[in-house]
Write a protein that binds this DNA or RNA. Structure first.
Length: 313
DNA sequence: AAGATTGTTGCTTA
DNA sequence: TTAAGCAACAATCT
């Protein structure tokens, strides 16, 4: 479930890898993965290059060299963007003693997904590329390839013009990494909402980028029950949630995101923040913080919600 | 084998 | 008028 930290990781990596490389061909294996339609999508992208990659919430924005169009990619639940530097890379003999190991690593993604650390099977990955979940393939002039994989076909790649982009941006709330994400702006959002705090954190129109995993983790760190009514939270409690949001997002980015089901970064690697999760996915287990409560799982805002009934109040 | 999984949209209800 | 709630979507796993 790519949320802000996962999408940010992909954005940062791809910004180092694919800029100014000409797109010479496209393969669209699932029509519904591209918008507005297959023909326009291909016709627009071919012969262009990507000049910059941006992100708003969980949405990736690729600036294109025609300066008129933008490629938006949303990974939704199971989307992956995996970049293959070269389909058949061979390093020169003078590359050093570990040349073969390096080559193997660079090429293993083709050989069958052995690039995965460990042998843990994760849905939709661990396959050679393209896989049965590959929906779009971008071919660059330097022979490198970008794969858009999406097991559940929820994600999409969409071409928009500047006006559409501007209108779309308006739909998003404040960005946790932006300067305007202040305690004051956060307070204003929370205090005006009658619904539960988890639903507020999840709503992209209020705060952009938080999804189900980080919502649970943030509220756990803040010691607040997810079902608490937002406008009834004390100032001190809002401050705790604000601080937890800030540190959680930053720490998760530092560890390259969370792989719970099938998130992979642009090299096909897992996110390490999974090791730091405190409540998400721990239903029935002892609370890691107070060591008294047992993590409970309920349904809130239509989502599985984990919390400790003892130390979250 | 039904129910859970989640991000977003669009519809309904309050 | 606007906020809030909920089904729907997709494909798999438990």
């Amino acid at each position: 479930m790519p949320e802000l930290p996962e999408v940010e990781t992909i954005k940062n990596d791809l910004n180092k890898k694919i800029l100014r490389k000409k797109i010479i061909d496209l393969k669209i294996l699932n029509k519904k993965s591209v918008k507005p339609n297959l023909n326009f999508f291909s016709k627009t992208l071919i012969n262009l290059s990507i000049t910059k990659i941006d992100r708003i919430g969980k949405l990736l924005i690729f600036y294109l060299s025609d300066r008129k169009h933008f490629l938006l990619i949303h990974l939704k639940m199971t989307g992956q963007l995996i970049y293959l530097p070269h389909p058949c890379l061979r390093l020169p003999a003078q590359a050093g003693a570990d040349r073969l190991a390096k080559e193997r690593e660079l090429n293993s993604i083709i050989a069958g997904g052995h690039f995965l650390e460990g042998k843990q099977k994760i849905t939709g990955i661990g396959e050679s590329l393209p896989s049965k979940h590959t929906r779009i393939i971008f071919y660059f002039k330097d022979k490198s390839i970008l794969y858009f994989n999406d097991l559940r076909k929820f994600g999409y790649a969409r071409i928009v013009n500047e006006k559409e982009l501007v209108n779309l941006k308006k739909e998003f709330g404040i960005e946790p990494l932006n300067k305007n994400f202040t305690l004051d702006s956060f307070k204003k959002i929370i205090q005006g909402k009658k619904t539960n705090i988890k639903a507020v954190l999840l709503n992209q129109k209020f705060i952009a980028g938080i999804g189900n995993i980080y919502a649970d983790e943030i509220l756990f760190a803040a010691g607040i029950k997810p079902a608490r009514q937002a406008n009834k939270l004390k100032k001190s409690e809002i401050e705790k949630i604000f601080k937890a949001t800030n540190s959680m997002i930053k720490k998760a980015i530092k560890h390259r995101g969370t792989t719970f089901r099938n998130f992979l970064d642009s090299s096909g690697k897992r996110g390490n923040f999974s090791d730091f999760l405190q409540v998400y996915g721990r239903a029935g287990e002892r609370c890691k913080k107070c060591r008294q409560g047992t993590v409970k799982k309920i349904k809130l805002a239509g989502r599985g919600t984990h919390y400790c009934p003892v130390c979250q109040t």
